[in-house]
Design a protein around this nucleic acid. Structure first.
Lengths: 146, 146
DNA sequence: GTAAAACTTAGACCATAGTCTAAGTCAACA
DNA sequence: TGTTGACTTAGACTATGGTCTAAGTTTTAC
C-alpha cells in the first residue's frame, strides 16, 4: 500500500506544504517518485515520519533530525551514534516532564489562588505562598468584598 | 530592594535584550523608571516575571501573555477571566505531560532497540514492535554480525 | 476527450521570539 | 573630572518552521 502526498497529509496531520518542506530540508530522502515525478509514501515511510515527528516534539531542531536521518540511511555503521542520540533525547524528555510537573504545580496553585480570590471578590483577601508546595490558601474574611 | 536591568537579567537568566523586548511587547507595564529613564525592577516585578516565564513555557504566545498581564493590571474585575486562563493552561500542561510520557516510551523503545542492534552489530538481527508498549526486543542470532 | 482535482516547482512571504547594532546618555569611581 | 561601564532608543537583522502563490503538468472521472 502506498499513499500520495495528499493521503499522507491526511493520515499524519502534517500538511502537504510541510511534507514538501521536510523533503526539501532533507528529512525524507526515502520518499520515492512515480515516473511522472509524483511522490508516493510507503507505510514504512509514514512510520518513519512518526519518528521524525516524535523527535521534533522533543524539541530537536530539523537540522539535527536531518543528521539523524542521514545516519539512518548510512546503515549499521552509525548504530552507536543513533543509540547515543536516543539516549540523549530520552534524558531530555525526562527533564522536560520534570519541568512540566513543576509548572503544573505552579499553575495549580494559581487556580486555587484565583478560586479563592473569586470567592472573596478580591485578591486582597487571599493569603498563600506560591513558592511553598501545596501551600494552603486562606481567605481573610475582614477583607472580603462578597 | 530594587534591581537594574542587568541585575535582573542575571537573577532571572533572561537577557537584557529579551527583557527590553518583553517590555516593548507590553508584558511588563509594571516596570518603573528612574528620573533619568533607567528601568528598575522590584522583587515583586521579578516574581511576576517568573509567572510570565511559566506561562511562556506552557506554550502560551507572548501576545496572549500580554492579555493576561493587562487583565492583572485591571485588577479584581478580571478575576474570573484569569481563573479561566489558569485552568486552561493547567489542562494544557497535563496534556503536554501525557504526550511527553508517550514520547518517552517511544524513545525508550528506541534506546533498547539500538542497544540490541549495537550488540548484534546490525539492525537486521533485531526484532521488536515499537507500537506495543514495553515490547520485548530480541536478537535473531542467525543474523548477528558480531 | 475534456474539465476538475491533485499534483509539481521555485521562490516569496509570514509569524514568533528573540538578538544585535549604532548613537547617544548617565552613573560610579579613581 | 574624566573615563569606563551600564544604561537608553529605534530599528535592523536572525533563526526556525512553516505557509502560500503562481505557473505548469498529470490524473481522475464523467
Amino acid at each position: 500500500m502506498v499513499f500520495t502526498i495528499g493521503e499522507t497529509a491526511n493520515k499524519t496531520g502534517i500538511s502537504e506544504y510541510t511534507l514538501r518542506f521536510y523533503e526539501k530540508k532533507g528529512l525524507m530522502p526515502f520518499v520515492k517518485r512515480t515516473s511522472s515525478g509524483r511522490r508516493y509514501f510507503s507505510e514504512d515511510d509514514i512510520d518513519f515520519l512518526g519518528l521524525i515527528t516524535c523527535l521534533k516534539n522533543t524539541g530537536m531542531p530539523l537540522a539535527e533530525i536531518k543528521d539523524f536521518v542521514d545516519m539512518t540511511m548510512q546503515g549499521d555503521e552509525t548504530l552507536e551514534k543513533r543509540l547515543t542520540i536516543f539516549r540523549t533525547q530520552r534524558a531530555a524528555v525526562k527533564q522536560q516532564i520534570a519541568a512540566a510537573q513543576r509548572r503544573l504545580e505552579k499553575l495549580d496553585f494559581k487556580v486555587r489562588y484565583f478560586e479563592a480570590a473569586c470567592e472573596a471578590g478580591t485578591e486582597a483577601a487571599v493569603e498563600g505562598d506560591c513558592d511553598v508546595p501545596n501551600s494552603p490558601i486562606t481567605i481573610n474574611d475582614a477583607l472580603r468584598v462578597k
